[in-house]
């Protein structure tokens, strides 16, 4: 492997230093390869290829941003939830999303980027997050569809990530998955209550399912033949199943669950392929996916604007906390000096 791709090499090295760095990299690479072959875990202080670090940093920080932006569609509904119980549930869920974002930022930081850098990238619109959160949540039934389908798809995607080869990422995902299952169940329950309510309520539930179906399926990412990074991520034991594999698995689960809801999925082409023993779905609009990802979705600018606003509105809290900590620190050192004197 070319030396300049590896992490030990920084600019301006003498030939001897370059030799030593190349040796370190060769040893590091050998250890890394062994860990991959054993399906073991890489920890923050281990040597890792620069591209592995970069890929993880991108994936984990995008994942963290998604959790943070993902608070918005639901937070909008807290004040309009139909009962105190539903408000409490929704608040708990939104608080969980904040927590998941923080677990993931912590994991990303172990790869060498500061929290502030990641935050700045998000606020500046330079970082990506899941395209799903750029769709609007129009009715109360959307809270149900988001929980059931969006969180359902997320769980499908995230369960295999608990075994990701990077230790801090896997550990964060274990925590996330444990908490996420309530999110999906509360969404399912909202839809179930609506679909067994008045005809108008049932219609509202069906409408939400219709709108969220395709965006939820696209959460798994582009089809396998159009997903350039997948192969490498699978070789690195970050990804365990391909996008299409997970998507098909999810479709199969929804097909069973939608019967209990007495609703339908807006896809005439869903079928169980007897040969491959896999579920298949109808065509998805990948142009739309790429448009939304590129920042031209229905809510992209609104979501970013809200994030900036929240960051600015919170500035005084951060400043006050820092000022208080400094004051306490000063008091403490004064006491220590008095004691010494």
């Amino acid at each position: 492997m070319a030396v300049q791709n590896l992490q030990s090499v920084t600019a301006e090295l003498s030939p001897e230093e370059l030799d030593a760095a190349a040796r370190r990299d060769a040893e590091g690479q050998a250890n890394f390869d062994r860990v991959m072959a054993d399906d073991s875990r890489i920890e923050p202080k281990d040597w890792m290829p620069a591209a592995y670090r970069k890929t993880l940093l991108r994936q984990i920080s995008q994942h963290a941003h998604s959790e943070i932006i993902g608070m918005q569609p639901e937070a909008n509904w807290i004040s309009r939830a139909p009962s105190l119980k539903r408000k409490a549930i929704l608040m708990a869920k939104v608080q969980d999303e904040a927590g998941h974002g923080l677990y993931l930022y912590s994991a990303a930081e172990t790869l060498g980027q500061s929290r502030d850098e990641m935050m700045d990238a998000l606020i500046a619109g330079k970082a990506r997050y899941s395209s799903i959160f750029n769709y609007p949540a129009r009715t109360w039934a959307d809270m149900g569809a988001i929980g059931w389908m969006v969180d359902g798809a997320a769980i499908c995607n995230q369960v295999p990530l608990c075994r990701a080869s990077y230790g801090p990422y896997g550990r964060a995902m274990v925590r996330v998955c444990k908490e996420e299952s309530f999110h999906q169940r509360q969404g399912f329950e909202i839809l179930l209550e609506l679909s067994h309510g008045t005809p108008e309520q049932k219609q509202m539930a069906q409408d939400a399912v219709n709108r969220w179906y395709a965006p939820a399926l696209m959460m798994f990412g582009p089809p396998d033949d159009d997903s350039p990074n997948s192969k490498q991520s699978m070789a690195w034991n970050i990804k365990r199943f391909s996008n299409d594999e997970l998507r098909n698995r999810f479709v199969g689960m929804m097909m069973e669950q939608v019967k209990v809801l007495e609703l339908t999925l807006p896809d005439k082409d869903i079928r169980f392929n007897e040969e491959t023993k896999k579920w298949e779905h109808g065509p998805l609009d990948w142009d739309e996916f790429h448009e939304v990802l590129a920042g031209r979705g229905p809510c992209n600018s609104q979501r970013l604007e809200r994030r900036r606003e929240a960051h600015d509105d919170g500035a005084w809290v951060r400043e006050a906390a820092a000022a208080y900590a400094a004051k306490q620190q000063a008091k403490q050192s004064m006491k220590t000096k008095e004691y010494a004197a």
């Binding site: 677990y103 912590s106 900590a325």
Partner: peptide
């Protein structure tokens, strides 16, 4: 359990 950022021990 994990890590976090804070200005002081109480926070």
């Amino acid at each position: 359990a994990g890590s976090l950022h804070a200005p002081d021990a109480a926070m």
